[in-house]
Amino acid sequence: MLLNVIERGPEASSDAQSLPPVVLLHGLFGRARNLGFVQRKLAATRRTLALDLRNHGDSPHGPMSFQIMAEDVRETLEHHNALPAMLLGHSMGGKTAMMLALRHPDCVHSLLVVDIAPGEGGFTRMDVPAELEKLDFPPHLDRAEADALLRPLIPNEAIRQMMVQNMRLGDNPGWSIGLADIMTALPTIMGWPDLPEGTQYNGPTLFIRGEISPYIQPKNYPAMHRLFPHYTLETISGAGHWVHVDAPKRFAELVEKFAER
């Protein structure tokens, strides 16, 4: 499946052509533009591609697994002549990036995984209730009305605003994302598949975790080392799961430093 791509880069730079492109992969219920601020920074010196993963943003819909999503990314980057690439993935996008690196290491120049480990972790059905699929939309909806419609189901402000961005507003409102496919795949997205013995990605790998996020813990370190033997880990003080929102300056510093290496 070819995914929707937002591409940015310097207008003309021979140096940029010699550097691996940077590919940005968002988290569950996100979209390509969620990492726009760091894409704009990186695009000053190199080619960057932010992707809408399947069922998200403006990409097509269909069944989901990390193997399937990794193949979507590989096919899309091959189509855009953007391999090998540095992959930067947050949460679900981080798991997708890891899967691509493990299945097709020749396609991945380097890997940056944001606040997720190769294991169980991510959203739960309490965060995104099943009732969303059966939501009764009125004939017309603006942003304030969409927020009010979701408030009884999603009391968390940050998650509710993220879901509002996935709604089609105006006349004939509804979900713009493949919500049914996403909800069906949630157990898979929360998990991590079994991999063949000896599977590894030996390229440069950086994990960035938020200090107050639960998704990278010491119990994850053995799997991280087994699959990514050359990984390093950075912790951003005071940040939660949305590290790039909670500490954008420090996050951008770590990303740019890793990209320069």
Rank of each mutant, 00 (worst) to 15 (best):
Arg209Asn: 12
Ile212His: 09
His230Gly: 08
Pro204Arg: 08
Pro193Ala: 12
Leu51Gly: 00
Phe251Tyr: 10
Leu77Arg: 00
Arg261His: 11
Asp194Val: 11
Leu24Lys: 03
Val5Ala: 13
Pro222Asn: 14
Glu197His: 12
Gly30Ile: 03
Leu83Ile: 05
Pro204Glu: 09
Asn81Ala: 12
Thr96Gln: 00
Phe66Trp: 01
Leu186Arg: 10
Pro139Thr: 15
Glu157Asn: 15
His56Leu: 02
Leu135Trp: 08
Ile208Pro: 00
Met163Asn: 06
Asp181Gly: 06
Gly119Leu: 10
Phe123Arg: 10
Asn166Ser: 13
His230Gln: 13
Trp175Ser: 10
Ala12Met: 07
His241Gly: 08
Ser59Gln: 04
Leu169Lys: 13
Leu35Tyr: 01
Pro214Met: 12
Gly203Phe: 02
Asp194Ile: 09
Gly9Thr: 10
Ala43Tyr: 03
Leu179Val: 11
Thr124Arg: 14
Arg261Pro: 03
Lys95Thr: 02
Leu2Met: 10
Arg31Thr: 03
Gln165Cys: 15
Leu135Pro: 03
Arg40Glu: 14
Phe251Lys: 04
His80Cys: 09
Met224Glu: 08
Pro129Thr: 10
Leu135Gln: 10
Leu153Glu: 09
Arg74Thr: 00
Met126Lys: 15
His241Asp: 09
Gln217Thr: 15
Gly210Met: 05
Phe29Trp: 06
Glu120Asp: 10
Glu256Ala: 14
Gly9His: 04
Leu195Asp: 08
Leu87Ala: 01
Arg74Ile: 00
Gly36Ala: 10
Ser18Ala: 15
Ser213Ala: 09
Gly210Tyr: 03
Arg125Cys: 11
Pro60Cys: 06
Leu186Cys: 13
Ile154Met: 14
Glu75Leu: 08
Ala130Phe: 06
Glu211Thr: 08
Asn156Pro: 06
Met64Ile: 12
Pro204His: 08
Ile189Val: 14
Glu256Met: 15
Glu75Met: 07
Trp192Glu: 05
His79Ala: 15
Leu112Lys: 01
Glu75Ile: 02
Asp181Cys: 11
His104Pro: 01
Pro138Val: 11
Ser59His: 02
Asn220Trp: 06
Glu133Lys: 14
Asn34Cys: 05
Pro60Phe: 06
Leu149His: 06
Arg31Ala: 09
Asp136Met: 13
Pro63Gln: 07
Val22His: 02
Val113Trp: 00
Val73Glu: 00
Met92Phe: 05
